[in-house]
Design a binder for these strands. Structure first.
Lengths: 146, 146
DNA sequence: TATTGTTATACTCTATAACTATA
DNA sequence: TATAGTTATAGAGTATAACAATA
């Protein structure tokens, strides 16, 4: 059983690498990276946010957010707008292009999921997600206790 | 169903992030990174290798391997040995510490897998790995065709 | 001529620390 | 005094291009 456990973990890791590489390749075509998309995603879902809020959400330093926002602003996905009541802060806001890109990513995310699971028998898909839930719960617990 | 597919993909991605963060934290304690461990791992399993072979195995530039090997050599996990028949090449070789570390990582990999799957009912584990196989196959096919 | 690995240069993500402008 | 974001500095991973030594 030990071996089967280790193999399953290896498979998850391979899956993780393949997914990561595949997404990175896709994003690169549009001049994006995973980290920058994370910002795009958050602003798309929460609306205009301060850099501080972004840093807390991504769990990254304020300095890092400055760099990510610089990159996204420079490539036209977002703008920095003044905060209406706090002159220290800026509101990271999506441009039209940023919004369109976020919507596209959302759509492609769904297409990608269909490609992965679409031809899987229903009971198999259910079994997979049940196991996935279990693993995720175990891992969340282990991670939280650190 | 669309939504269930997308949620399952989200779960896989969350799993991927948690695993990655957890491993990175662990490795950092020993002065290692994912990329460097990849090198350590390959040399541990294949025996002494040229940097060219490492670059091909990791799918990374020769320049990048120089940096990774520099780091691992500097921290005492590997040494560069002369190639017996090709004076252009070097053989990346594990030190005792490098070998001991690789063996430890291997052991902890098994422990980690047991933590993730150990308390999962047998049939559930089977269902999970079956689905995982399916997803991995679909993804490998999609990735290969690029 | 082709290959191995290095130096030179550059970009991205990440961090801490010091500093400015505001709260 | 505390907070938001910047500049300064640094390390890691990644890339291409030019180059030296060797095949």
């Amino acid at each position: 059983m030990q071996v089967r456990f280790a193999s399953a973990l290896d498979q998850i890791l391979e899956l993780s690498v393949l997914l990561n590489d595949d997404m990175a390749r896709d994003l690169e075509r549009r001049g994006l990276t995973r980290s920058r998309v994370h910002v795009l995603w958050l602003v798309h879902h929460h609306g205009p946010m301060t850099q501080r809020a972004l840093a807390d959400a991504i769990n990254v330093s304020a300095r890092n957010v400055t760099g990510l926002v610089d990159g996204l602003a420079h490539t036209g996905f977002i703008t920095r707008e003044p905060h209406p009541s706090d002159r220290r802060a800026t509101l990271v806001t999506l441009t039209d292009r940023g919004t369109a890109t976020a919507l596209n990513l959302e759509r492609e995310h769904g297409q990608f999921a269909r490609m992965l699971f679409g031809d899987m028998p229903g009971h198999q898909f259910d079994g997979f997600t049940t196991g996935l839930d279990h693993v995720l719960t175990a891992l969340r617990k282990a991670t939280a206790s650190i």
